[in-house]
């Protein structure tokens, strides 16, 4: 798509990747290193506001996200910031959009930035990309194919993208732009990359269904129902692994897989693994390097049987 040089980008891990999503952080960094892509951490970053701050006031969320982008562009001189977390990615994209189109949002962001003592984000100064864009645009399927050491052959994967990666459409102007671009209705970047790594992609109809991540704790039964639906569908599609690209979805699936088992007696078999972990294994990184042992669903034995770990 873009010819921009993605060999060196600003990296915004976000709060989740320092906690429950640690395996995602670990595997993303390991993958970058293996592929010769440099990640420079955004310095003194703050939380993007996740899914919660917008319910207090959406403009604060815009400000929080804009602060991250402002530091990456104004202080550090980057034109691209990569956020692997769907929540962070979504909020930064939303701030990009809102600050380009909504004068009220701009006014609040400028006011808060001034009081906080830093430069306000300048619309258009930096582009936010997801970890999927990062690999897809810098390395691509062909690049992955060339580098595969342990093909993921025989590993049946259902790709789960979740809500925040594609919705609402208007904050992702680069999507749905014809061949080569990502689709908001049927996203395929993860499918493309994992297929290039040899995995067998099953036709999973719930790619962008919701895991109830926003109410994981506040309305757990609803979340458990939604996740059980996702997991049972994956089983029915014949998938062994659900590949994820969001720490909230990932830990939601893990947590409610257990909750469905302990509370509702519904046992499902899918192993829940970050796509960066799968790509890492395919490129010859060890299971420990990509943090397989940090996942709750035990997949080490499975990957050993398949000869990739």
């Amino acid at each position: 798509m873009s010819d921009k040089n993605l060999k060196r980008v600003a990296y915004y891990p976000g709060c989740a990747l320092e906690g429950t999503g640690h395996a995602y952080d670990r595997s993303t960094r390991a993958l970058g290193k293996k592929l010769g892509l440099e990640l420079v951490d955004v310095k003194d970053w703050n939380c993007c506001g996740a899914m919660e701050v917008k319910n207090i006031d959406p403009k604060i969320q815009t400000y929080l996200s804009s602060r991250v982008m402002s530091i990456a562009s104004e202080d550090m001189g980057f034109d691209t910031v990569m956020a692997p977390c769907n929540g962070c990615y979504h909020n930064l994209k939303k701030a990009e959009y809102d600050l380009e189109n909504d004068p009220e949002n701009v006014a609040v962001t400028e006011r808060l930035s001034k009081k906080a003592g830093h430069d306000a984000y300048k619309p258009g100064s930096i582009e936010t990309i997801h970890a999927l864009d990062w690999i897809k645009r810098s390395i691509g399927e062909d690049g992955i194919k060339e580098r595969v050491k342990n093909s993921l052959k025989g590993i049946k994967v259902a790709n789960y993208y979740g809500c925040m990666y594609t919705r609402p459409r208007h904050i992702f102007p680069e999507k749905d732009q014809g061949p080569g671009s990502e689709s908001t209705l049927k996203p395929h970047f993860m499918d493309d990359l994992l297929q290039a790594a040899g995995a067998e992609i099953v036709d999973y109809p719930l790619k962008t269904a919701c895991c109830g991540g926003a109410h994981t704790l506040s309305d757990s039964d609803t979340s458990t129902k939604l996740v059980t639906n996702l997991l049972e569908a994956a089983d029915e599609c014949g998938a062994d692994v659900i590949a994820t690209e969001c720490p909230t979805c990932h830990s939601g699936l893990e947590m409610h897989q257990i909750r469905a088992e302990t509370r509702f007696g519904k046992k499902t078999n899918s192993k829940i693994v970050y796509f960066t972990q799968l790509l890492g294994l395919a490129l010859g990184l060890s299971a420990r390097k990509v943090g397989i042992h940090e996942n709750v669903s035990d997949s080490l034995k499975y990957f050993k049987e398949k000869g990739v770990a």
Binding site: N46, G49, A50, V53, I56, L64, H215, L217, S218, D219
Partner: peptide, 20 residues
């Protein structure tokens, strides 16, 4: 419960910039 969660979450961010 959702509002309780949002408030807990937001107050942490407003206080420290991050959540744990």
């Amino acid at each position: 419960p959702s509002m309780h969660f949002d408030e807990e979450f937001s107050e942490q961010i407003f206080a420290t910039g991050k959540i744990e």
